[in-house]
Write a protein that binds this DNA or RNA. Structure first.
Length: 891
RNA sequence: GGGCCAUUAGCUCAGUUGGUUAGAGCGCCACGUUGACAUCGUGGAGGUCAGUGGUUCGAAUCCACUAUGGCCCACCA
């Protein structure tokens, strides 16, 4: 297999993915392998209408790294993919299409026909995002792809509803709900975004009843709602209005006299200190109305226009009514003044229209009891948030949780399993009632099912176990639940994460209490921002499309870059050139592998110990052992970018910069030493590919195959299912590490002399290495061949306390003087300048270090090792400084 | 109003329990290189670690306050 000199991801990615699929790599075996532990991850199901964005790409990468790592470690690993039916979003898409193409509304089609259309649409377009996850390399078990409206999940939804009903946790209430006038449905508190806007504060004068000529002025941002006023409130201790409490005002445009009441919640400093009470259209007023037994008047139709309560304004839109009411009041001289004000306005997440608080009949779930075990689980550490700070956010929400309004006035979704008899008595305690059946409690015939559907989250909160077969006690459920890891975005901690945890405790009843928590670790990933620090979003048009990135840089490069620039949960500004890093790195790996593949012994397994191993061999194997342990530890603790950094340094700075260069000195050598080098290359590449695989799965799989071909054998299996590398059999070799460090010092010293003297890089130099230490001299003597082989030097003299040759420059490294004879073209002034600068810097460092060593506190508290280290450092600095000064004097 | 996060090189970010001469990548400058890799190599310039005060022998790191930016929750007549 010929490898191209530059890695071309597009030549490989699709074929490799297909290979994985064909081999069934992502599907766990039918029977759990003996002794293995399960490791399960549930994908946060994206909306069926969704397309992949950077957040998905990041989160997909995180999950895939974890899953591939655990799979390699031998866990019985399952990653379940799927999509969410996303009630409002999907219905809106199909309605829009229907109107655009056929000019029809959903009512024109009728419920059944419309739903058929939505299912059609889902069949055709609903898998786009899952296809995109494949492009990313996600190793999901596609045979288990789930959808929140599948028959199985629908059955689970009905079962869960029935259980809640039987426990009395579901109730119907006339409540003020957040009404979306565009989508004409109730939405939950969590689907609302409050946006700061400029508005106006109108001061309306209400005539005081029975006191002609006296007015009570109220301030409001929504004058049109005055038609629904049923009272006016003032603070009980507000002296201005004390005499009015108990009296009434006459509400303009109506014949209503409404009471003036005293209420603690009124802020005397805001506006006039008097507030109109509109229980039908304001949550705070609703509460006030309840306290003072005021009637609730709804002045709006479901589409946001004024109903008959709107008097002469009936039929107008909210916006129009506002203008008309203000104009009419002005004419009656009941408008005192208008002020500019900033206030926040509730907008619907979905339609971006202004939310209207509206009294209507809705179904709710009591949350208090459900929240308790979910709070306990996190407090007791059964579930860990990463980063940990989200624990507090989660707990704060649960501790003040509101009841959950679960009914939605839509067609697309799980129709609420509640049936009514002819007297409208509801029943939710059976899952399979039909029209005509007797009502289980009243015995009267059922006449209809509730037309509303359930909130989308009422199905996705069952996701971790409903996708495994719940409520049936399936083998899958037994084997793969509870799950180990969940990674998701912070904005659904309340909507989804908290509810899944509640559902786990409430419904996973076949398990002992301690195993009911839906997952063990909840990772909240970074938010991807654009280069200006704004959140990427489709509407803002500032997003970078992951598919474009894959097209330009390759999936592996994108994965690696995303991981490297998103430290644990920390937001990140993303600009496209960040992907260069990943591309360069994948290319570096590719070329390192190419070099290795050109230098392998077919069919021969080299010993990785013994006399044939050179110091660099023992060094790189020692580094490999350290890196293997480090990366394993990082991944086990979900420190992805630490693992990525470690691998980057190892591959680039150790393996490529040093080992490959040193190995070249033995390239093609047909003896034990040459064979040893080739054996080491093979081992290091093999393990490195394994360690890198979770990050860059496509490329490492390609190289894995090429490596085995070059070795003259078939790979036993795909890298995707090969065991995770371990440091077993590799020795940490401190001596080899020290020796290599010394060699690196020498080369560093030579380079710095070159830089100082301007002697060209490849121009051969003669060097004299002088050391006071016999052991060091011996080590260097051993390394002579390698040092010369690196190409920096043409001749080398090694000895103890050698004299500085005439007309030479010197550098110091590790207590070692390196003299390099100077040619005639050397700029002595520049050399002097450089050396002086270095001496100056050393002077400063020596000063601060000796100060530290004179510090009694440091000597007392820092520990022996630290003190010894500082002493050694100081000695080194002093040696270097004096040697340099001596050399400087001789110039 | 309550809470969270950030502020380190021109840019994007590391810096694990306080103790190396504060790092990396990109960008910039100089030089080099065509048998793994120009998606390369070597060297360099560039930082009073947002500010102030405190704790400590010692603070980018811990504490308090301030400033700027971002996010979340609550309220908003």
């Amino acid at each position: 297999m010929e490898l191209e000199p530059r890695y071309d991801p597009h030549a490989h990615e699709q074929a490799i993915y297909q290979t994985w699929l064909d081999a069934g790599c992502f599907t766990p075996p039918k029977e759990q392998p003996p002794g293995s532990k399960p490791f399960t991850v549930m994908i946060p199901p994206p909306n069926v209408t969704g397309v992949l964005h950077m957040g998905h790409a990041l989160n997909g990468t995180i999950q895939d790294i974890v899953v591939r790592f655990r799979r390699a470690q031998g866990y019985d690993t399952l990653w379940v993919p799927g999509t969410d039916h996303a009630g409002i979003a999907t219905q809106a898409v199909v309605e829009k299409k229907l109107y655009a193409e056929e000019g029809k509304t959903r009512e024109d089609l009728g419920r059944e026909a419309f739903l058929a259309r939505v299912f059609d649409w889902k069949e055709q377009h609903g898998n786009i995002i899952l296809e995109q996850f494949r492009r990313l390399g996600a190793s999901c078990d596609w045979s288990r792809t789930a959808f929140t409206m599948d028959a199985e999940l629908s059955a689970a939804v009905r079962e869960s509803f029935l259980r809640l009903w039987k426990k009395g946790l579901i109730y119907r209430g006339a409540r003020l709900v957040n009404w979306d006038c565009v989508l004409q449905t109730a939405v939950s508190d969590d689907e609302i975004e409050n946006v700061e806007r400029k508005g106006k504060l109108w001061y309306l004068k209400y005539p005081v009843a029975g006191q002609a000529g006296r007015f009570l002025t109220v301030a409001t941002t929504r004058p049109e709602t005055m038609l629904g006023d049923t009272g006016v409130a003032v603070h009980p201790e507000d002296e201005r209005y004390g005499d009015l409490v108990g009296g009434h005002v006459e509400l303009p445009f109506t014949d209503r006299k409404i009471p003036i009441v005293a209420d603690e919640t009124v802020d005397p400093k805001f506006g006039t200190g008097a507030v109109k009470i509109t229980p039908g259209h304001d949550p705070a007023d609703y509460e006030r109305g309840q306290r003072h037994q005021l009637p609730v008047i709804n002045i709006l139709n479901k589409d946001g226009t004024l109903n008959d309560e709107g008097q002469q304004f009936a039929g107008a839109s909210r916006e129009q009514a506002r203008k008309d009411v203000v104009a009419a009041l002005e004419q009656l001289e009941l408008l005192e003044k208008i002020e500019d004000i900033k206030h926040s306005v509730p907008l619907s997440d979905r339609s971006k229209s202004v939310i209207e608080p509206l009294v209507s009949e809705q179904w709710f779930v009591k949350m208090g009891e459900l929240a308790e075990p979910a709070i306990r689980a996190v407090n007791e550490g059964k579930l860990q948030f990463r980063p940990e700070r989200w624990k507090k956010v989660y707990l704060d929400w649960l501790e003040g949780v509101h009841d959950w309004c679960i009914s939605r006035q839509l067609w697309w979704g799980h129709q609420i399993p509640i049936w009514y008899d002819e007297d409208d008595v509801p029943c939710g305690s059976a899952t399979d009632l039909k029209v005509g059946d007797p009502h289980p409690e009243t015995g009267k015939p059922i006449v209809r099912q509730d037309p509303d559907v359930l909130d989308t989250w009422a199905s996705s909160w069952l996701w971790p176990f409903a996708t495994l077969g719940w409520p049936n006690k399936t083998a899958d459920l037994e084997r793969f639940y509870p799950t180990q890891f969940l990674s998701t975005a912070r904005d659904i901690i309340y909507l989804w994460v908290a509810r899944m945890i509640m559902a786990g405790y409430e419904f996973a009843d076949h398990l002992p209490e301690e195993q009911r928590c839906a997952f063990a670790v909840c990772n909240i990933h970074a938010t991807v921002l654009d280069a200006k620090g704004k959140r990427m979003s489709k509407s803002a048009g500032n997003g970078i499309d992951p598919l474009d990135v894959i097209a330009e840089y390759g999936a592996d490069a994108m994965r690696y870059s995303l991981i490297m620039l998103t430290r644990e949960g920390q937001d990140v500004r993303l600009s496209e050139n960040r992907f260069e890093e990943g591309k360069r790195f994948t290319n570096k790996i590719w070329n390192a592998a190419r070099f290795v593949l050109m230098n392998l012994d077919k069919g021969r397994v080299a010993e990785l110990s013994g006399a044939a191993l050179q110091v660099e061999d023992r060094w790189i194997l020692s580094r490999l052992a350290a890196v293997t342990d480090e990366v394993t530890d990082d991944l086990e603790n979900y420190r992805f970018n630490d693992a990525g950094t470690t691998l980057y340094r190892f591959v680039w700075n150790d393996f490529c910069d040093w080992y490959l260069e040193l190995a070249k000195t033995r390239q093609g050598q047909d003896d034990d030493s040459g064979a040893a080098a080739r054996g080491v290359l093979s081992r290091v590449l093999t393990d490195t590919l394994g360690l890198l695989h979770p990050f860059t799965p496509f490329q490492t799989e390609v190289l894995w195959k090429a490596l085995h071909e070059a070795l003259g054998r078939e790979a036993e299996q795909l890298l995707a299912v090969t065991a995770w590398p371990t440091a077993e059999g590799l020795e940490r070799d401190v001596q080899a590490e020290e020796r290599l460090n010394l060699m690196q010092d020498v080369v560093g010293a030579v380079r710095s002399v070159r830089a100082l003297t301007g002697v060209a890089e490849r121009k051969p130099l003669t060097a004299v290495l002088s050391t006071p230490d016999a052991a060091t001299a011996a080590v260097l003597e051993e390394a002579r061949a390698q040092l010369l082989g690196l190409g920096h030097l043409s001749e080398l003299t090694i000895g103890r306390d050698l004299e500085r040759p005439a007309n030479s420059a010197a550098a110091v490294a590790g207590g070692l003087e390196v003299f390099v004879p100077l040619g005639e073209d050397v700029d002595t002034a520049k050399l002097k300048e450089g050396l002086t600068k270095r001496v100056e810097k050393l002077g400063k460092v020596i000063m601060s270090t000796s100060k530290k060593l004179e510090n009694p506190g440091f000597l007392k508290n820092a520990g022996e090792d630290a003190v010894a280290e500082e002493r050694a450092k100081l000695a080194e600095f002093e040696t270097e400084s004096s040697l340099l000064q001596r050399n400087l004097a001789g110039l």
